[in-house]
Amino acid sequence: MRVLCLHGKGTSAKVFESQTSNIRSQLSIGNVQFDFVNGPNETTAAPGVDMFYQPPYYGFWEKATLEAVLKAVDWLKEYIAKKGPYDVVMSFSQGSIVASSLLLLHQKESPDQPPPFKAGIFICGASSLRVLEALGFNITQEALARDEASVDALTKQADVSSIMSQGAERWKGDSFMQGRSEEEVRDEFQGPFKIQIPTVHVYGAKDPRLGASLQLAGLCESKNRRCYSHQGGHEIPRTSNVTAMITDMVEWALEFAE
């Protein structure tokens, strides 16, 4: 079984490999090959990343315009055509936007063809609101503004000064959920279809991008998804209990893909 692994903005394949090492080491399913790939564009480090990991750093775009996201999706299609096929995609943050955009575009353009993956694992994930808008989903200007504000909040909470002065206390959660329940946020975006493959959604209760992760979960068929909220921020905590929970969910996705 082959798993394609897509990292977050301003990190790298090596960073994502390190971030998921505890999870992968505890898998009971054998014969799983994880392919960690660098994004197509070399860039600066994401806030706080250069404290722990050496360059180079990569990303899929600098500004998340519709054109930039579609270009990244085309790059991913070409990569899969050359290096694939893959059974599962596992992604973090910006990598999840690329993966979910590919799956949604496939659902729109080729609904009668097998999807590019049999299962998806999204960690601190999100979707592209511009892609959703182009696909016919109802995306309000308020939602677009809220999404941009949550990205700004993540940048501030994850930077070096916040890490040095506040440590784990720097994560303040998503104030842009504005008192809405998780269920309300998951159901916010209504459109003509959903991602049908089994999906796993892992997100942090204190992540300023929590709302974006919940919205992505809502774009996936409810009967085929599993969700887990840890108590951290925009990260993959390495505590034993969190690792065990995420590992269990990853195994669930891998079993579907076998």
Rank of each mutant, 00 (worst) to 15 (best):
P56V: 03
Q54V: 02
E235S: 12
H201E: 10
R130W: 12
S25K: 05
T199L: 11
L216K: 00
L104Y: 13
E184C: 06
K118V: 05
F189L: 15
D35C: 02
A217V: 12
F16M: 10
H234S: 09
T243F: 01
Q190T: 13
M1I: 00
W252S: 06
S175N: 09
S21C: 01
G233Y: 02
Q19Y: 02
E169W: 00
A119T: 06
P198V: 07
K83Q: 11
S28T: 05
S150Y: 05
V185D: 13
S213V: 09
T239S: 12
E258V: 01
S18E: 04
A257E: 06
I139L: 01
E258D: 04
E258Q: 08
V69M: 14
F92E: 07
A145L: 12
V15Q: 04
P56S: 02
F16T: 02
F52Y: 08
Y57C: 04
E183F: 06
C220R: 10
A64F: 10
A158C: 07
P192W: 14
I23Q: 02
E255N: 10
A149Y: 05
E62W: 08
N31T: 00
T11H: 03
Q19A: 06
V242W: 03
E78L: 11
I236G: 00
E17K: 04
S128N: 14
G10T: 08
M245Q: 14
S175I: 11
E17I: 00
L27G: 01
S165N: 11
K156S: 04
P85D: 04
Y86C: 03
G125A: 08
M249G: 05
S96D: 12
R24A: 00
